[in-house]
Design a protein around this nucleic acid. Structure first.
Lengths: 162, 162
DNA sequence: ATATAACCTGGAGTTGACTCCAGGTCAAGC
DNA sequence: GCTTGACCTGGAGTCAACTCCAGGTTATAT
């Protein structure tokens, strides 16, 4: 019968790179659901639990606090999101923030790449779009006599560090 | 002669939304350079200082620790980056992380949007690309019987919440 | 039989990033 | 002359997010 494969906490820790203590901590503060136990009391993680842990870690890296993550998990778990329209708005807002942040980071990277190549810089369209971040970087860069650069995304530039 | 306009700490706090205490703290831990003083000892911020503060705030929002920000500030300040190739690599790495993160967030948002529209979902190419984050989400979503979705960036979807 | 290893719990300790406070200076207004 | 407000300093306090630990159980290996 459908015996789902499960993992020990050690395995989960190894595979996710997150410490056992932290994983237990996430359960303690209810970021993870109650994990099922074996007869001996040891936790048995299902792969969906592991995915949730990875998701937490990912959201954390985007600067989200553990508390802020709860709604994300709710939507992922309850699967009934039409009930929470403001939650969806939160998701959208957070994405918008991240979009702005990456734009800013992209500019920093472009800036650095540019300096490496000394002189070879391309200037293109400067789109509208406003967030403290983008402003911060464009303005900071202007101080160094570099104008706004185009933002390009997925194709990692990899321009010669030669 | 070139009298640059300066700002009081209060003004900087108001304009950046960051508290005076925090601004002083950043100087204390040398994330900001020594800020010039007036005769009476009060700090005089130049607009480049303000931009640096905004940059710090922006990087913070992307989940970077204050310590990790230091190299970014060095490159921005010293303007001599060919000396630090591993620093450039750091920048690239961080950007790559963020790119992956936004891809993941995009998928979450798409997922939620999809659920709102109940049934109308588009499935496109699923690119390669690997990061715990993207894996976490795609796998988590598969659990809910939703397949990988295409990532689209700047045009905010804004599909009817109707 | 016993040691080793993987797990458990509750709670204390640590770290990073602020945030608050007491006590003091200085300049302007009443 | 005195109060008010904006600033200063050093240091203590707070909060989130871990991280560590002591003391205990159970399963496997020698």
């Amino acid at each position: 019968m459908g015996m789902e494969t499960t993992f020990t906490i050690k395995q989960v820790a190894e595979q996710t790179g997150i410490s056992e203590d932290t994983i237990r901590y996430y359960e303690k503060i209810a970021l993870l659901p109650k994990i099922a136990r074996k007869e001996n009391g040891h936790r048995m993680y299902r792969s969906s639990d592991m995915q949730t842990i990875l998701l937490l870690n990912c959201l954390k890296k985007t600067g989200m606090s553990l508390d802020e993550m709860r709604p994300f998990l709710d939507v992922s778990a309850d699967a009934d999101p039409a009930e929470y329209p403001e939650l969806v708005q939160m998701l959208r807002d957070h994405r918008a923030n991240i979009v702005n942040q990456i734009a800013s980071l992209q500019q920093i990277v472009d800036f650095v790449d540019m300096k490496l190549e000394e002189g070879k810089y391309r200037r293109d369209l400067s789109q509208e779009q406003s967030d403290d971040c983008t402003e911060a970087i464009t303005a900071a860069e202007k101080e160094k006599l570099v104008s706004t650069v185009q933002m390009n995304y997925f194709p990692m530039p990899n321009r010669g560090i030669e």
